[in-house]
Design a protein around this nucleic acid. Structure first.
Length: 571
RNA sequence: GGGCCUGUAGCUCAAUUGGUUAGAGCAGAGCGCUCAUAACGCUUUGGUUGGGGGUUCGAGUCCCUCCGGGCCUACCA
């Protein structure tokens, strides 16, 4: 039994996430966590809301709430949605927690002591009307190169030229439109990660089998131009972890907070501490997951994230942990994802284009979305959601192949033998063949799950379901019942057991449907099948069961058409 | 501009990392079955692997080039 630490990239607090966000980190992380638990491993699965930064402050201002109240409310909303999608976090924390404040300040102090923090005075644009410094991209103006009037302070979207905010003609605040902008000098802390470049480079080189997407992005940042650049880790904001604190190795940083990308990954650790607090455990309970000197050296740590998160997880966060000089657990494997697009374009919050987590659950149960999203996870390239694909996939895979199998077996048994597992008869070579086929495919399925090959896992699971329909077709208990009822009884006894077997192995993908099947089969034996023949003998003759309601109702053409219109983006 | 990924059947994707005749699912066609959510099973049509050139006994896979799609490019997170 291994110990596996799993973190999902933290969803940002300023709104409800869309399906692309979900499939890019939280959902595949959940699949992996569920599978590893099912295999008997000790799992710590951590996620949290990422609550700091300018967008959170602006979102709160828009609703008129204090930012802490806004974040608390949105955290509750996202927690509900996580439950709705059956995401099995051991803890869903908050980056604004006291634990994260303390740990972020601790690590910053350690980095300072190690000589890896530098104070740099720089010029930033301040908006009097907004009462805040503006990040580059929150400043708009006319592009000096092409004349585009809505160029942003970091880059012109029209001509793609890199810009400095002071390059803009007629600059204005993108928040308020205010033009009373002023360049002010302000002091910030920089993480001198350039000093760790070789260490990070060698660490990346030692990682075997990481997705190309992960290592190529890291390598680019390490070797582009002059190599890895130092990075500002503080901001002039109110909401966040204060930079000035008792014991800080610097002065004069009052009123500043750490940059959200500095404190967000630290929350992985802090959230584990929050987990311990919630369960009344002492610090050793979480430190055994994170400190290699306190038991974490046998932990396997896997991170899940979208590709936009890769630089922070391959470079900045490791630099923070390594630079602290303390024995923190580093990530062992990074599973990164491309983007999910929506029907020919990108998901868009502002345009109301695409399907968001709350809307998805209002249309259909979580398992429908889980199955489609996971079986089409954007592992090798960007993927695309279309309603037509969703409808055919879900109807075919879930309703026809799996759902109907459960239905045909349980209903046949009820009509011929009653609602308990029939007795009598014996199985023969056809059944032995089924066991052999299931064993082969179960091994392949397990191999893909271990490797986090998500699409392949889904395809293999579906193939396992298909074996049930093939068997039933050949065995044809409806025929054998007429000539040899005992044989039919043995066949159906096996088929009922097969249904329970499917519920167990399908649970990581479709946990709610699996639970319904298990309830109908009147079983709570979720142990992972290591010996297929034994696993198909768990429900003995005489064991009572119930015919479940339709497991997966089909998506109709009318529904599909309605939803296509509803989510096309003219909100 | 630079870097990276990607292009395989009508659609969504595989192809053990250079090795027989490029495979699945869906869609299409035919047959079978009648337990079941008009479900299931079997058979089958369909590809000059984006175009061109090269290396090799052998290329979907490696190299060059052109065309198309996408991502990143460090102050959004």
């Amino acid at each position: 039994m291994a110990r596996i630490l799993i973190t999902s990239a933290l969803p940002y607090i300023n709104g409800i996430k869309h399906l692309g966000n979900l499939v890019g980190s939280q959902l595949p992380a959940d699949l992996y966590a569920r599978y590893m638990r099912a295999r008997g491993h000790e799992v710590m699965f951590i996620c949290a809301t990422d609550e700091h930064g300018t967008p959170a402050e602006l979102a709160a201002a828009k609703t008129g709430e204090p930012v802490d109240a806004y974040c608390a409310r949105m955290h509750a909303v996202q927690t509900d949605l996580a439950h709705g999608f059956a995401l099995s976090f051991d803890h869903y924390g908050r980056s604004s927690s006291a634990r994260n404040h303390a740990l972020t300040q601790h690590l910053a102090a350690k980095l300072g002591e190690a000589g890896l923090i530098e104070e740099i005075a720089e010029k930033q644009v301040y908006s009097h009307t907004d009462g805040r410094f503006l990040p580059d991209r929150y400043i708009e103006g006319t592009c000096p190169a092409c004349g585009y009037e809505r160029a942003r302070g970091d880059q012109c979207e029209n001509c793609t030229k890199q810009l400095d905010p002071t390059d803009l003609i007629n600059p204005r605040s993108a928040i308020s439109g205010a033009t009373d902008l002023e360049v002010r000098e302000t002091k910030h802390l920089y993480l001198r990660q350039s000093k760790l470049r070789d260490t990070l480079d060698q660490w990346i080189d030692r990682q075997q089998g990481w997705p190309v997407l992960t290592t190529s992005i890291a390598k680019k940042w390490l070797h582009d131009g002059d190599g890895l650049r130092d990075r500002g880790i503080t901001r002039d904001l109110d909401w966040g972890v204060p930079v000035q604190f008792d014991g800080a190795p610097w002065q004069g940083m009052d009123g500043k907070v750490f940059y959200v990308w500095f404190d967000a990954p630290i929350e992985y650790i802090a959230a584990t501490a929050e987990w311990a607090d919630r369960h009344g455990l002492d610090d050793s309970a979480w430190r055994r997951w994170w400190r290699t000197d306190e038991g974490a050296d046998d932990v396997r740590y896997v991170q899940f994230m979208g590709k936009d998160n890769v630089p922070f997880h391959t470079l900045s966060f490791p630099a923070t942990l390594i630079g602290s000089g303390e024995p923190w657990k580093l990530v062992d494997y990074i599973k990164s994802f491309n983007y999910l697009n929506y029907d020919g374009g990108q998901f868009s919050t502002s345009l109301g284009r695409g399907v968001f987590m709350d809307q998805a659950l209002s249309l259909l149960p979580a398992d429908y979305w889980r199955w489609w999203l996971l079986s089409h996870a954007p592992e090798n390239s960007d993927a695309e959601f279309t309603w037509e694909n969703f409808q055919t996939s879900v109807n075919k895979d879930l309703a026809d192949v799996l759902g109907n199998l459960v239905s045909r077996v349980t209903k046949f048994c009820r009509s011929k033998f009653g609602e308990s597992v029939p007795e009598g008869g014996a199985t023969g070579p056809r059944e032995a063949q089924l066991v052999a086929d299931l064993t082969t495919r179960l091994h392949a399925y397990a191999g893909h799950m271990e490797a986090m090959d998500i699409r392949k896992s889904a395809a293999e699971l579906r193939a396992l379901w298909v074996l049930g329909n093939e068997y039933l077709q050949e065995a044809a208990p409806w025929s054998s019942f007429k000539t040899d009822p005992d044989l039919a009884a043995a066949q159906i006894r096996l088929a009922l057991n097969l249904i329970r077997f499917y519920a167990v192995i399908s649970q990581p993908f479709i946990p709610e449907a699996s639970a319904r099947i298990m309830a109908a089969m009147n079983s709570d034996d979720w142990s992972w099948p290591t010996d297929v023949a034994q696993a198909l003998d768990r429900l003995p003759a005489g064991h009572a069961f119930a015919v479940p309601d339709v497991l997966f109702a089909k998506i109709t053409d009318e529904q599909r058409a309605d939803w296509e219109t509803q989510f096309s983006g003219q909100r």
